[in-house]
């Protein structure tokens, strides 16, 4: 249990530290690396919740897929020029409002504790011996099949749309 706590704080520090460094670094590639660190921290937190499937998918998709494409684009950009430009914009009122809202939300959850969450009933029968992946697949393809299919349709639309936009003549 102590190990879990230590690991939790380690991963949480990774997430927060990575996040802060992502927005404060001037060099875009360094920012991307710290974003990767932050995402790896999130993956670690998933693992601590024994959600192994999410852990692996988080790394495969975010670190291996999305961040690789990010870096791919960053490398094609003139970094010296980008580093000279202003790093922060002046919309601090909007930012303050967002931060305040999130802060209020966190404060509410901290004050109310576990009572703030409506936990699903499934958690009680979680230890049926089935792995995390199997249970996730079971829920995704039976209980939540319609939302799942709608989400995949949405992604298909995005894929087709990007092809249409990128290619003038098909």
């Amino acid at each position: 249990m102590l190990m879990d706590t230590i690991l939790f704080y380690l991963f949480a520090a990774l997430v927060l530290g990575g996040g802060i460094l992502t927005i404060t670094r001037r060099n875009a590639v360094h920012s991307a690396i710290f974003l990767i660190l932050s995402l790896l921290g999130v993956a670690g937190l998933y693992l601590l919740q024994s959600a192994e499937f999410l852990f692996a998918v988080q790394i495969v998709l975010y670190v291996g897929g999305i961040m690789v494409l990010f870096l791919f684009v960053i490398m094609l950009v003139n970094l010296d020029q980008a580093a000279k430009e202003k790093q922060f914009n002046r919309q601090w009122t909007v930012a303050l409002a967002c931060a305040g809202l999130v802060g209020a939300e966190i404060f509410y959850f901290l004050a109310k504790g576990a009572g703030a969450f409506q936990l699903a009933k499934g958690t009680a029968e979680a230890n049926t011996g089935m792995g995390n992946t199997e249970r996730l697949a079971d829920a995704l393809f039976s209980q939540y099949l319609l939302p799942f299919e709608i989400a995949s349709l949405l992604l298909l639309v995005a894929v087709v749309g990007s092809v249409v936009m990128a290619k003038k003549r098909i």
Partner: peptide
Amino acid sequence: NVGILVISAMSAVGILGIILGGW
């Protein structure tokens, strides 16, 4: 119990080593 995924994840992260080294 997600063995194969761990291997895919590791090979996916390994790409970063190549890209960052080249850059």
